[in-house]
Amino acid sequence: MGFLDYFRSERRASASVAKERLQVIVARERSGRGGPDYLPALQNEILEVIQRYTSVDDDAVKIQVERDGDCEVLEVNVTLPADH
């Protein structure tokens, strides 16, 4: 059974990789939703600027517009790497 198990675990990886990738991309796309059309571009440019100064992951910048009564608040979250 040993070699069969080996193939099985190889295969199991493919669906779980798909799931992980989907969770990341769907979360990212949802966060940009409902806001102004320029949000994704703004998010990318902020990321580029930050990456000029320090190395962060491509999904380090989270951006969204929150409505607070009459005000709209642009919320930008940047995750810096642990060794900072």
Binding site: R12, A15, A18, Q23
Partner: peptide, 17 residues
């Protein structure tokens, strides 16, 4: 194919969406 881990399961799809 889900059993073989080649295809997303219904639970996976529900969880994501």
């Amino acid at each position: 194919r889900v059993g073989k881990g080649e295809m997303l399961s219904v639970e996976d799809v529900c969880e994501i969406l």
